[in-house]
């Protein structure tokens, strides 16, 4: 099962290596990882999407992360009410004739064209990973030249519903 785990860490040298090395050594598959500073100076947040087999492995991954001295807090937010986003940049082969057709495709996704050249254009999209996947599939017939994705980052919503409402919010199932 896919889980979204956030880790608040001290912004010390080697901390990213520590976390990724740990996951690799204990055979946890990292689907994506994104890191950046938080509202507090010296504290960064990592958002990890990992693939784990079962509850026991999930418990292990959070415990092992928590055990790291530079890791302050680990949360599995998969089943919480969250807002989760990823950003992707997609370079598509496109002549000027195709441009409006592509525009028509990306518009419902609220994606933007951010660079245009003679035979390609670059599209920026923000959203949940499945939405990005969907757009990529639609663009594939035009010829995708390059994709750059940031990996997922997420926040818990201000209001957390009661347990029985949670299922509806779950992002990854």
């Amino acid at each position: 099962m896919k889980r979204i785990i956030t880790a608040t860490v001290q912004d010390r040298s080697g901390v990213l290596y520590r976390v990724t090395g740990l996951l690799q050594r204990r055979q946890f598959n990292i689907e994506s990882i994104s890191v950046g500073p938080t509202e507090t100076e010296g504290i960064s947040k990592m958002t990890l999407v990992v693939e784990v087999e079962d509850e026991q492995r999930l418990e292990q991954v959070t415990k092992q992360l928590n055990k790291q001295i530079d890791v302050l807090k680990v949360s599995d937010i998969t089943d919480k009410a969250i807002v989760a986003r990823e950003l992707a940049l997609i370079k598509v082969a496109s002549s000027s004739q195709l441009r409006s057709e592509i525009n028509g495709i990306i518009d419902p996704f609220r994606a933007l064209i951010i660079d245009v050249s003679k035979d390609s254009l670059a599209i920026q999209i923000t959203g949940r990973p499945d939405k990005i996947d969907a757009l990529i599939e639609l663009l594939r017939p035009y010829g995708i030249k390059e994709i750059a994705r940031t990996g997922l980052t997420a926040l818990q919503r201000g209001h957390q519903p009661q347990v029985n409402e949670l299922a509806a919010h779950a992002l990854l199932k």
């Binding site: 026991q56 418990e59 292990q60 415990k63 092992q64 928590n66 055990k67």
Partner: peptide
Amino acid sequence: IDPAEIGK
């Protein structure tokens, strides 16, 4: 004393 050992 090490929670990660429990249930591992």
